[in-house]
Design a protein around this nucleic acid. Structure first.
Lengths: 327, 327
DNA sequence: CTGAAAGCGCTTACAG
DNA sequence: CTGAAAGCGCTTACAG
């Protein structure tokens, strides 16, 4: 690779590596280094197209200016957008981002976390698939900068950014009831222990007026399409007049199935998580939407604060409001 | 952080760091290290939950087991899926992935590349927004492992993975003509110099029977929604009876606009890039689809080959076929 | 069969 | 105002 190193600059200028390092890290003035010398160093660095080896620096300082991000499914547009906004904010603050995909698999998630930690990331943003936070405790114990996102553990006192899932789901159901729908089924997805999903179910339960008339159908996350088929049958035979889908994958799969069968739908659909494609979907679906960009940005801010003020960090639990999009 | 290091294992066992390193890198047998000692080392490593500091290792060996990936837009589902498949394959082969977003901005892309190189990534997968490959030449000169993906530079002799964009576009147009549509407009997106887009336009041009009847409308990538409005007007006033959209973002935006206006469409739509949402979109759109997973996997394979056989690497240009999905 | 030592490229006390 | 030196945690010739 014959990359340019500090030594190359130092030798070609007849100064020490230490001086070059100081200047290039903008500590020249603070350390009272001759302005002219500083300029020479800078010029040379530019001329040789020098850029520091991050691994050497990381090894020395313990800082790597790299953040880790783990999401359950990169190909879900919700996480795609989230990643994008996180990447944007991280880049703005001078961080790189290592993104990993857990495939909703707790074991893999733990491996990924360890892996990222071995890369000496400065902090981690995590949309966790874990059932409990015990496997994350060691990070908290070390005061390692960690932000939970989308899915949180309420009792686990670390930074987190999420939305008001209970209220959002409740709002969805109440909207349907106001519109005259009285038998509302809830399509939900496993693993159901994930906080966001659990809360949406809770909101649904709380929102339904007639508690006799709740109907929960659970569909495995890794086999949605076939699960949905059965669900539809049940919903139709039980004459439900509306369906609340707990996330966008369910809604998509449901719409797909409806269009395949090309049958009339006797029920209204509302979805948690809005997709731009709902704008041209048939049948029309209303949706609860999340401020994805704000979630991403806020999570990076919290993480960055923790990193730069490790000692006195006080964890916060940010909860954004959801919106209702009527179609 | 008080992370466990080689030294900790060595001291607690009364052996040297070198021995521990050798054993843990599976060079114990090769170097004839006592089986029992080896076992002791392994046990201790497990007990202390040791995992090597990647930065130290990277500094020493020059290898980091980390790949870089740059895409123009993480929130585009096409790239989301591509990232997922790349991440999956990379992880299978023992690599981490640093993902960056170029926002279709050539200057930013160059910065990102330099940045990744400073992190000593072992190789780079790039969906480039650059107009020419001159800014990439230095990597080729250094024989740095690089794979171009989705967008390529035909004259630039490095590994690449793409699809037959010309043939795909041609097939789309020919299909429409066979179905009786004779005035086909082409909705295209800037920057138009990107190889995939340029080739699709080329394919469209070649496919149209009546060369008098080609109609190209170019829409800026960062302002699709407003551009599409005008496009529709023109298409309607000129009485085109079909539209070929050069990528999924255009198709989505077009569908959205059509549904907003709630107007009848007198034209058939076909899209390059299929989306699962087309299954329930209205109006129905046919599509040319790409083998996204295969593209991702292949790119990682090529990169991995280059990394592990740096000296004798011969670059390949892989081109996958597209498919036609009729709706 | 195992250890002492050098060195990857940095940063940061310490010394003058 | 500047330099020599130590050390981050590894791996790998070299030596015995």
């Amino acid at each position: 690779m014959n990359k340019v190193s500090l030594k190359d600059i130092a030798e070609s200028l007849g100064v020490s590596k230490a001086l070059v390092s100081l200047v290039l890290n903008n500590k020249g003035n603070e350390r009272g280094i001759n302005k002219e010398t500083q300029q020479k160093v800078r010029d040379k660095a530019k001329e040789l197209n020098y850029s520091p080896n991050q691994y050497a620096r990381g090894l020395r300082t313990g800082k790597t200016d790299t953040l880790g991000l783990i999401v359950p499914d990169l190909s879900n547009i919700f996480y795609g957008k989230l990643c994008k906004s996180i990447e944007m904010k991280a880049s703005e603050l001078g961080y790189d981002l290592i993104i990993s995909n857990s495939y909703e698999d707790p074991e893999r998630e733990i491996k990924l976390i360890n892996n990222l930690l071995n890369k000496n990331i400065d902090g981690l943003i995590l949309a966790s698939s874990l059932e409990s936070c015990t496997d994350l405790q060691f990070m908290k114990d070390r005061n390692f900068p960690l932000v939970l996102i989308d899915r949180i553990f309420p009792e686990f006192k670390v930074d987190s950014v999420s939305v008001s899932n209970i209220e959002g789901a409740k709002q969805a159901v109440e909207y349907l009831q106001k519109k005259g729908y009285s038998k509302i089924a809830c399509l939900t997805i496993s693993p159901v222990y994930v906080s966001s999903i659990a809360d949406r179910i809770k909101g649904y339960m709380e929102g339904v007026d007639d508690s006799e008339n709740t109907f929960l159908i659970q569909i495995p996350h890794d086999n949605i399409d076939s699960g949905i088929e059965n669900a539809i049958k049940q919903i139709e035979s039980e004459k439900y007049d509306a369906i609340f889908c707990v996330n966008n994958n369910l809604t998509k799969s449901l719409l797909k199935k409806i269009n395949q069968k090309n049958s009339e739908t006797n029920y209204k659909i509302i979805s948690f998580d809005d997709l731009e494609v709902f704008d041209f979907a048939s049948p029309k679906v209303s949706a609860i939407n999340q401020p994805i960009t704000k979630i991403g940005e806020k999570s990076v801010e919290l993480l960055s604060n923790h990193i730069s003020n490790r000692e006195n960090h006080i964890s916060q639990k940010i909860i954004f409001k959801t919106g209702l999009i009527v179609r």
